[in-house]
Nucleic acid binder design. Sequence first.
DNA 1: CGCCGCATTGACGTTCGTCAAGTCTAGTGG
DNA 2: CCACTAGACTTGACGAACGTCAATGCGGCG
Lengths: 239, 239
Amino acid sequence: MDIRNFKVACSNCNLKELCMPVGLSFQDIEKIDQLVETRKKVKKGDHLFHNGQKFNALYAIRTGVFKTVISSEDGREQVTGFQMAGEVMGLDGIATDTHTCDAIALEDAEICLMPFDKLEQIAHEVNALQHHVYKIMSREIVNEHNIMMLLGSMKAEEKLAAFILNISQRMKSRGFSASEINLRMSREEIGSYLGLKIETVSRTFSKLEDDGIIKINNKSLSIMDMPRLQKLISSRRDC
Amino acid sequence: MDIRNFKVACSNCNLKELCMPVGLSFQDIEKIDQLVETRKKVKKGDHLFHNGQKFNALYAIRTGVFKTVISSEDGREQVTGFQMAGEVMGLDGIATDTHTCDAIALEDAEICLMPFDKLEQIAHEVNALQHHVYKIMSREIVNEHNIMMLLGSMKAEEKLAAFILNISQRMKSRGFSASEINLRMSREEIGSYLGLKIETVSRTFSKLEDDGIIKINNKSLSIMDMPRLQKLISSRRDC
DNA sequence: CGCCGCATTGACGTTCGTCAAGTCTAGTGG
DNA sequence: CCACTAGACTTGACGAACGTCAATGCGGCG
């Protein structure tokens, strides 16, 4: 891991719409620019932080994709999410001042390190930032409710359709193609995230391909029939 | 729903260890006492708030048990949690200024209403409260990660064991018996929460009873063999 | 070239969902 | 107080969905 100790201005960042509150005064923007004190590169496969590690900063992703994983004593592992540019990691660490999951880069990545005490201090001076932090955390909670719905009440095909659509939307909102997607995670990681075994993930991909809804070749995924994909998760068979 | 418009002092509340930050100065405590402006009674089966309703307050439970439920357009429902005294509801509403789930009382209950703008204002003046709100939200995120693990990688028996132990611990930390529990939720609600059908919940309860680990009669649950119950969720069969 | 990790595919078994019948309980009204 | 009913719970029989095990394919890399 290569650490560069140079300042990065959030006001110049092309991701600020994703990360930062909008409609700030010039003064406020100046303050927020002090928030990110270092940028950090993380190589594919490397940890950004570990379960059990002392918490002292949040991390905003500039480039690259991460996964977060929790593990129990008995060796069970669960991927709790895939994070991409503009998203914030480490919120779970605030509760106990200790990170409760591992964050691992799925490709070479670059993140902005925001020391939490500094964030609290600036948030104290800039109400809009304060409110923004609440919103980010709340969004995470809402998001996880949706994953609970997915894990608790969907079948394999529905789960995978929801997963693909979710990735697709997030790529689109970042200016990438919504239908030509380069998956960064393995089948096993997808399976862990969706509560499925790797074979089921593979089989379900194959089925969606046979049905002409997607094309998948290793990690490159094309959505061929978006409407039918959406139908898979919004139509229940029971009346 | 019966609304009483009288002030309640958090400093006098016997739940303050659960709700509020500790180690405050006298001045800070005075400020925080202004936070809860109304107490509200909610009858069994009534909604505290609805999905889609405008968000403007958080709710701390004084007495009673609630469930929170999200539902998708296609009629799927998922219980996202059961909340008891000292726990805070409504955090999901901050993100979009709209509640994204229903909160329903499982028994007659009493809650403290904390207007969110007021909370933000007082939090601005009292740093410890500020930090405490972060902690509460972070705790919620960590908690939901654990539920994801449960939903994603556990079998029915393990899920139910984890559920019982979770309830047991929370009862204990509130001064109730850890082994003699009065469940407030139906089998169907438990099933929805755990990603199981009602019949599976019932069967699994019966199996745990046959094994001598619990006794269950309708809604009254006794834990007969705590160690074995704990073993169910911490021992994996694979090496 | 050969190895290794990842992915796919098939055959089979287990778990859990589905359907259906029957029991128990609490609440209601006579 | 009892009878009646609706809703919640239990139990059994069966089948579908998914996990497990195993064989095979495929692409990347030393």
